[in-house]
Amino acid sequence: MASSRSDFAALLRAWRDRLAPADAGFAPKASRRAPGLRREELAELAGLSVDYILRLEQGRAKHPSDQVVGALARALQLSRAERDQLYRSAGLLPPRDGTVSAHVPPGVQRLAARLGDVPIGVFTADWTLVWWNAMWSALHGDPTVLPAAERNLARALFGTGAARDPVLRVRPERGPDTFETSIVADLKDAVSRYPADTRLARLVRELRAESEVFAHHWATRATAAQHTSDRKTIRHPEIGDILLDCDVLIVAGADLRMVTYTAATGSSDAGKLDLLRVTGAHIAVPRP
């Protein structure tokens, strides 16, 4: 067990040193002594504390959870083989084939990191948020304040937990019913493609029991949604209403959805995004 913790710590340090800050969305700094990420940067990307990262790298933190290892693998932009190696070094089984994957390919992360002016969130096939940038946090609030299980759009729409507050501030132009139906249709499609995924099955089972609206949508003959552009009004507690174009981009071969928000150049809403870009990355969106 001590050897396993040592392997995990060594891999964590080596892969942190390997990742260029620019590829992770951080601006280069003249004071930077090493080419890789700093611990505080990795902590920010993975949604963990700097102290916990330090204890992991020193081998003092024992038994990291699969959620922690998955978050570190995404933050470090590991390949699928490297991700599996990190899981095994933590004494965990890597995610099985045939289940919803939360792996975000390094190329997708580098692309999203270079689009730092645009709010971007990356979701899995069951609409769990697994990657986001600073502008996404500025627009919707910091996802790390939510429990990992609550970072799911279906739970936000139909559940009663803490994730519901941010989604209530978003008004789709096509109407809430169309949006809700499309999310349920995507979940039905995911269940058909990942029948062995117990976490997905539990999500659907709980939402059918908790929400009459979800149960109604689930009982219909909804088919997988073909996502098209929509315009959404986001009510931000500091900036006010921002009307933005929302696009869902499908990542081929990875079963991921990249959600982006943009505004026409020169519009008042583009100006509000600029204001968020300058000051909003540090605005804390209040939670109930």
Rank of each mutant, 00 (worst) to 15 (best):
S3H: 14
S4R: 14
A10G: 12
A10L: 14
L12W: 13
R16H: 14
L19K: 02
D23L: 11
A24H: 02
L37P: 02
R38Q: 12
E40F: 04
E44R: 10
L45K: 00
L54I: 15
L54C: 06
H63G: 10
P64A: 06
D66K: 12
V68T: 15
L72E: 07
R74N: 14
D84I: 02
Y87R: 04
S89E: 05
S89D: 08
P105S: 09
R110Y: 04
A112W: 05
V118A: 02
G121Q: 04
F123E: 07
T124E: 02
A125F: 13
D126S: 13
L129I: 04
L129W: 05
W131H: 00
H140F: 15
L146E: 07
A148G: 08
A156P: 03
G161M: 05
D165S: 15
L168W: 03
R169D: 08
V170S: 13
R174W: 01
K188W: 02
V191P: 02
L203M: 08
E210K: 03
E210M: 02
V213F: 01
H216W: 14
T220H: 07
A222Q: 01
A225K: 13
D230I: 04
K232T: 14
I234P: 06
P237W: 01
C246Y: 09
G253K: 14
V259F: 07
P288E: 09
